[in-house]
Design a protein around this nucleic acid. Structure first.
Lengths: 225, 225
DNA sequence: TTAATAGTGTCTATTAGACACTATCAG
DNA sequence: CTGATAGTGTCTAATAGACACTATTAA
């Protein structure tokens, strides 16, 4: 093989909603470089392993799950000095996860935690992970507008109010419940009615339960206001 | 450095409009593997070179220019078997070029040609370049809707009719000239009037000349119909 | 009952698309 | 003049956003 050889890694921007806030999964680095600093989960790609497979493997290692999680390629970062050990190129992936059990199960990192993205100081992250996180959050915010990906933050069955809470958390401002309801329920293929309703309506009318539909482009989009 | 080392390349999907058709720049490979086959322009990243710089360098080498050309990262392709010589990861870039002189100047490829994308058989391209081209064209088509990037296909000064021809070529169907005119001229920041008008109006009223504005997100979008 | 949430209807200002119409050129 | 392209105005159906109103639960 001619020319330069580089190390190949994947890094993950795993987002979820916790307590009405958009949160990202961060791990504490257990080894140099940047030992002790917060970083995005990730690792090196194995020989013979496809990029997407590496991303799924790291996701499973760090979160214990992976089934039903939306994963898409975000961008690739390869500036010459981004890793002090030598030239390393990282293919970053964006993962949208439904709410899950408090601590991260099956993690092999020193510690993995959900941190509200607004509380993260990008400068304090290892490598160029602050930049990667910023790009990932912006991608997620944009995708809510013109795709049904908000539902990826919800459990398999969810209500319109649950979905609206996702939008409000990601965009950071409230939406009109009535107009939102009409918009998403009338968008063909966005939501599949299950026929069931919530039983635990604490002080309100029970809500219909939906599953994710098969639509992939939302036209017209839901606007960010 | 731990773990696997891979070769790092950039490949370019360079699009332009020629004779009302969306065309891509293809080169004929002069060396194995895939010698003689059509391929996207590209090459290996140099030591110490940033990914975007490598893309700009290859673009300049293949097209002779690069100034004023829109370039953005498309995606990264790294399936284990995609290069028979060994594991190679390619960061693909999308470039939108205004119409330029017929043959490609300053090219170091055996031959570089503009081919209408509808005439390209993806299966007949080297490596996984058929897939990369498909992804690039789809990205371009989508970006015309919600960004002012159509203007990247136009020369520095252009008319509304010229811009409309771009949209029609990329999307493959005609648009109403009057509604299109109103839409783009009333979108704040899309077009900058120069005050000048075309002189060579062969059989029609002279048209105003515009330059690209500073807007980056088109809201509301121009819909594909 | 009240408080809370789910969901529907309605009004208004805005917009997309269709297309009539005017403006300005070449020949 | 005719024919062509540039650009504006107008009409209509559809839509976004505001918000009144009904439905169904817990307490």
């Amino acid at each position: 093989m001619p020319y330069m050889q580089v190390a190949l890694a994947v890094d993950l921007v795993v987002l979820t909603i916790r307590e009405h806030r958009l949160c990202v999964l961060l791990v504490e680095r257990g080894i140099e470089p940047y030992e002790g600093l917060a970083a995005l989960p990730g690792g090196f790609v194995l020989p013979g392993e496809d990029l997407a497979d590496a991303a799924y493997r790291e996701l499973a290692e760090e979160t214990g799950i992976g089934d039903g999680i939306h994963l898409e390629q975000l961008a690739t970062y390869g500036a010459p000095g981004r890793d002090p050990r030598g030239r390393t190129v990282s293919v970053a992936w964006l993962a949208l996860a439904p709410q899950m059990a408090e601590p991260v199960a099956g993690s092999d990192a020193s510690g993995a935690h959900w941190i509200p993205v607004d509380d993260v100081n990008g400068e304090a992250l290892a490598f160029d992970h602050g930049l990667i996180l910023k790009d990932g959050v912006e991608r997620a915010r944009a995708k809510l507008e013109y795709t049904p990906l908000g539902a990826a933050f919800c459990p398999p069955e969810f209500t319109v109010a649950h979905l609206r809470a996702v939008y409000e958390a990601v965009w950071g401002h409230p939406l009109d419940p009535r107009n939102f309801h009409r918009k998403v329920t009338r968008a063909p293929g966005f939501l599949c009615p299950t026929g069931r309703v919530t039983t635990t309506a604490d002080g309100g009318r029970p809500a219909q339960l939906f599953t994710r539909g098969d639509m992939d482009v939302l036209n017209p989009p839901i606007v960010r206001g």
